[in-house]
Amino acid sequence: MTQTQFRELSPDAEELQPILSGLFDEYAARYGDFFSRQKEEELTEWYLPPQGLFIVLERDGEIIAMGAYKAFDAQTAELKRIWTRRDQRRQGLALVILQELERRALRAGYQQVYLTTGFRQPEAVRLYLAHGYQPQFDIYRDPESYALPPFDGRLRFTKPLSITATADAS
């Protein structure tokens, strides 16, 4: 019998490194060094409770997907690192991670979530639009145009959190 569960980890946990490497390898394949000039320093403590969280989804003890949030401001959690291993895709796991992050952010006291995705990630854009995220950009514009000044390549979304919406996700 297959068993799936969430587990909290520190983002610098050794067992997380292979899936993080997969994420960063995919970013490199899609974007080359486009985002390297704007690379932000990420601190482990940003993703530790109570202001942050890093979770993995495991199936039979194997990490298959991940996601995180950190404080964007006092009322807003910024979702980060939502990713599914390539061999586990097309099972709705990104949505499972997204909903769990929303539920936990609400429980931690956040009132809304914010996230960005890259201009070459149409599957992520579709996921967020289909699940109540409000784009902060023109969805009808060619996404590649967001790689040109005055833009920075990131497509921004926001979503208010509500008890009803996150209860439906549990």
Results as ranks from 00 to 15, higher is better:
residue 3 Q to I: 13
residue 9 L to R: 04
residue 13 A to E: 07
residue 14 E to P: 11
residue 20 L to T: 06
residue 20 L to Y: 12
residue 22 G to Q: 15
residue 26 E to G: 04
residue 26 E to H: 11
residue 26 E to T: 13
residue 28 A to C: 01
residue 32 G to Y: 07
residue 36 S to H: 12
residue 39 K to S: 14
residue 46 W to P: 02
residue 55 I to W: 03
residue 56 V to F: 09
residue 61 G to S: 08
residue 61 G to F: 10
residue 63 I to G: 00
residue 63 I to M: 09
residue 65 A to C: 12
residue 66 M to A: 10
residue 67 G to Y: 09
residue 69 Y to W: 09
residue 70 K to F: 02
residue 76 T to N: 03
residue 77 A to N: 00
residue 78 E to Q: 15
residue 80 K to N: 04
residue 81 R to T: 05
residue 84 T to Q: 04
residue 85 R to A: 15
residue 87 D to N: 06
residue 87 D to T: 08
residue 88 Q to V: 01
residue 90 R to F: 08
residue 91 Q to V: 10
residue 92 G to R: 14
residue 94 A to C: 09
residue 94 A to E: 07
residue 95 L to V: 12
residue 98 L to R: 07
residue 101 L to C: 06
residue 103 R to Y: 12
residue 104 R to L: 15
residue 106 L to P: 01
residue 108 A to V: 04
residue 108 A to P: 03
residue 112 Q to T: 06
residue 114 Y to M: 04
residue 115 L to C: 05
residue 117 T to P: 02
residue 125 V to E: 00
residue 128 Y to N: 00
residue 139 I to G: 00
residue 139 I to S: 12
residue 139 I to P: 08
residue 141 R to G: 11
residue 142 D to H: 12
residue 142 D to N: 15
residue 147 A to R: 14
residue 154 R to G: 08
residue 156 R to C: 07
residue 157 F to V: 03
residue 160 P to E: 11
residue 162 S to L: 00
residue 163 I to Y: 06
residue 167 A to V: 10
residue 167 A to E: 15
residue 170 S to V: 04
